[in-house]
Design a binder for these strands. Sequence first.
DNA 1: ATTACAATGTAGCCTTGGCTACACTTGTGA
DNA 2: TCACAAGTGTAGCCAAGGCTACATTGTAAT
Lengths: 151, 151
Amino acid sequence: MAHHPAHHAPSVELPAEPTQARRFGKTRTALSAVVLEDYAELIADLLAANGEARPTDIARRLGVSHATAIKTIARLKRAGLATARPYRGVFLTEKGHDLADRVRVRHRLVVDVLRALGVPSEAAEADAEGIEHYVSESTLKAFAQFLKSRG
Amino acid sequence: MAHHPAHHAPSVELPAEPTQARRFGKTRTALSAVVLEDYAELIADLLAANGEARPTDIARRLGVSHATAIKTIARLKRAGLATARPYRGVFLTEKGHDLADRVRVRHRLVVDVLRALGVPSEAAEADAEGIEHYVSESTLKAFAQFLKSRG
DNA sequence: ATTACAATGTAGCCTTGGCTACACTTGTGA
DNA sequence: TCACAAGTGTAGCCAAGGCTACATTGTAAT
Ligand SMILES: [Mn+2]
Ligand SMILES: [Mn+2]
Ligand SMILES: [Mn+2]
Ligand SMILES: [Mn+2]
């Protein structure tokens, strides 16, 4: 098997392997953070709106079973993002609050940029829910700049 | 337990539950497609560049073990996106090619928009690798429009 | 023909994020 | 007081995507 058959010269450009692997790896890392970020953001919102964040409410809003929500809350605790005592609701640690704040900033900025680009608001909100988890500092900065510079 | 304590009136606005659940659900669906989309796009690129797509090459470019790549290739087959016979490389079905084409279009469009917004190219490429999986038709259209209207 | 090595495949393990089904708390209202 | 329903927790299942370790196959060179 060994080597590539040199059938024909590469006629299509690909990024160098290590570069491409790094990019994909970054995406995978982000992937595993998606759920934690959404939970943190939602819990912060519920706490702000209702003064409490109950597993059932979290589950309902996420559209998952309460069992799933509870398991993920356990993961948030393991990650040092939340605290929760049985039957007593969920709270965010400082770290959790920081994360929630950062996610909220990204969420708003992404929605605003999409809207500014002419995306209808429901689509903007829905897409932002995914996009928000992949926006680097560079992109964030560019987004803010773009919004400012264009009123 | 029953009802929410009416401690105080909700002072923060949240989207209606079903709406929010639908958005999150959409994101989860996209999530499970991320890997398939990246594989399809990469396999198409390898086929175009090298005339073949071998599990090892796929693995190297994704930054993943060959065992992982092989398992995912099996999933692509199950999903009707690829064909592969032992020791004979991976090929895309028509469905697989279609998917790869659509993903490539999104990828380019996202990169172009990020670049146009002033994001440095390496960050644009890296972020696009994630963002591309969450861009709806609406947003795609808006992106294309934006690029056209601004030269 | 043999051999050596790269590539491929397989097995078995882990974590995560889903689910359903069932059991236990808790707060309210009768 | 106490029953009952809502909320919460637990157990056990599944698929996916990751890994390492080991076995097999193909091919290119000798
Ligand atoms: Mn989100
Ligand atoms: Mn969000
Ligand atoms: Mn991608
Ligand atoms: Mn891509």
